[in-house]
Design a protein around this nucleic acid. Structure first.
Lengths: 344, 344
DNA sequence: ATTGTAAACCAAAACGTTTTGGATGTCAAC
DNA sequence: GTTGACATCCAAAACGTTTTGGTTTACAAT
């Protein structure tokens, strides 16, 4: 049986109230009593029962995160780094992190509702927003504290952190155009994801800006996996008039694209340019190193946690809508001539 | 204010007890009353307060997981898949998952103690066991329910799931020897990790079995990252008498090794053989596809969850010590001649 | 009429805290 | 010796459930 505050009280010969107030450093307890209580509590190995505290305080000191998993082999280096950012920050603030993994859909919404209605969490982090996002709609409607990684279409009167995918993509396309590319293909992330819209808008705007033709056959949709980048690239390269550069909506697909190109004997960075988005650690160590757009994902995780906790505590929250400017990282995969540049 | 059981009781004109027992389907409540209570509860949007339930039931219906993160850019495709397995299984059983991220060390142990002593979780999953593992020691000493992914040195009277790394490594080395390799290098994971021992033992045993020399200069230690696989391989290839085959302790390092080899103009799978361990999704899509040893990581996550929950519920737990036999996946990175075999 | 049985219900206690709203004692000031 | 101020303490209520240990009612059997 774990030792409770009652046991400590009996031992020191004081009331439960006094012990509680001593441990919580109230100033209507003498310093002698405080010292005594603390010593005895430590000796007896007392640790407060968090559940009882929560019930009484009517808050959980816990934040929730529902990871959208796609398929059983959900393997995304992006999320582990993001999770580390969130986890370390919440721990630093003394909060716990409750994680669920659900594929987008009804079960996912159910997971949100359970966490909210069961008073299991004080706030939620919504990740990878969709164009129309039922999670955001729900949380906004009931006025539950949350922050989102990503924006949604329409009104944006909720707290979020996002990366300016449009600008990132513009930089990328501009860079490729400067290398002399005119037929640039784009493997877009699933179009229901909000960031897919941004990046697509950036891609199209930059193509127009550079005076390049928007060939619909050079825009295909992938699923953010290595495999789909590979498959879509095979298709692109089999076209009668194939692209000389391929931009992928994330690094994983870009790595898949590289493989497809190399498999048919193309030298990436020489015969064809390939670029990604995210700057996962592996991008730097790909062969050749991958040109990409850096998203500081660990930092974003920390920011989201910190912002959410401030909202929960009703503290001053500075900027509620943060749009980070990503930075282009030029490496060898994007040159038309073999280069020795190395970024990031 | 959320609606409580008291509100429902008032509305249906019954006692709190009856409402509670109706909702929990006790048979001392008439079916008419049950139906009424349920209808009204649903109408009013009643959801039980999980915290109050937990306090009363003296269990949390929550399991804990402390992810060991190495460095801020903790990016391991292995863990996201593992997490999905654990998360989906715990959700299926109606349990919650409390996740922390901490670097190995004192703070990590503190995280374990807080979860245990604050009665925050009913059980814990220990992942990536160390040779001497203070987490396992602690949980075993206090008799707290846990399962481990991996074994430890010494007595093994605790529940775990592990992959037989020794056998896996034997198969790998045997395969390479069959391809005619005699100078085989090994990039071992950090030696304090328990699976590093297994795999090392398998490597050495297989080398001896195949009548090959164990050259100490061909055994180096990496940190499981792409980067360190890259760096250690550069070193190996700079030796006066470099290896013709390199085995890495995980796929991430193997991919780094491939890059280092390719960078100096070697054709992987022809001029040099490279193999990994894990079979992450990307292994199949590397260029060339990576020979590796498959660990069913998603399934392992599910097994661990299921096993832990049975232990918590004091149900029959079948095998408490599960040692899975991994399977060799031969792909193109390991041939001395260009092959077209494709596995997994 | 009494007893026994079964069905349906419920008041109160309990889980382990924190908070509320005092109570008590001491000492100085008048 | 009364008053006020202050320091120190504490009983009881509260948080929202489930569980304990009943009670009440109806009806059949004696």
């Amino acid at each position: 049986m774990p030792v409770t505050i009652k046991d400590v009280a009996r031992r020191v010969g004081k009331s439960i109230t006094t012990v509680s107030r001593a441990l919580n450093d109230y100033d209507d307890v003498s310093s002698e009593t405080k010292a005594l209580v603390r010593r005895v509590a430590a000796e007896m190995g007392y640790t407060p029962n968090r559940t009882a505290q929560r019930l009484q305080k009517r808050r959980s000191d816990t934040i929730g995160l529902v990871l959208p998993t796609y398929g059983p082999r959900f393997s995304d280096p992006f999320f582990s780094e993001f999770l580390a950012g969130i986890g370390n920050q919440t721990a630093d603030f003394g909060y716990d992190l409750l994680v669920s993994t659900r594929a987008p859909g009804d079960e996912e919404m159910e997971a949100y509702r359970r966490k909210v209605q069961g008073r299991q969490v004080d706030g939620l982090i919504v990740v990878r927003t969709r164009q129309q996002d039922p999670r955001v709609d729900y949380l906004r409607r009931i006025g539950f504290p949350f922050v989102a990684f990503g924006r949604v279409q329409g009104t944006l009167d909720f707290p979020f952190v996002d990366v300016d995918g449009e600008q990132g993509m513009r930089q990328l396309v501009r860079h490729l155009a400067e290398q002399g590319h005119r037929r640039i293909a784009y493997i877009t992330p699933p179009s229901n994801l909000n960031f897919a819209q941004d990046r697509m808008a950036g891609f199209q705007a930059a193509m127009v800006e550079q005076g390049l033709a928007l060939d619909p056959s050079l825009v295909v949709e992938g699923e953010l996996t290595h495999r789909s980048g590979y498959q879509q690239t095979q298709r692109l390269l089999a076209l009668a008039d194939p692209p000389t550069a391929i931009v992928a909506g994330n690094d994983l697909m870009a790595l898949g694209a590289m493989r497809a190109a190399q498999e048919i004997g193309l030298r990436v960075g020489a015969d064809i340019a390939i670029a990604g988005f995210d700057n996962i650690p592996m991008a730097e160590h790909a062969h050749p190193p991958l040109t990409t757009v850096d998203q500081p994902i660990y930092t974003i995780g920390r920011m989201l946690s910190a912002m959410l906790i401030r909202i929960i505590r009703q503290e001053e929250v500075g900027e509620q809508q943060v749009l980070l400017q990503p930075s282009l990282v030029v490496r060898q995969s994007s040159g038309l001539v073999t280069q020795s540049k190395e970024g990031g």
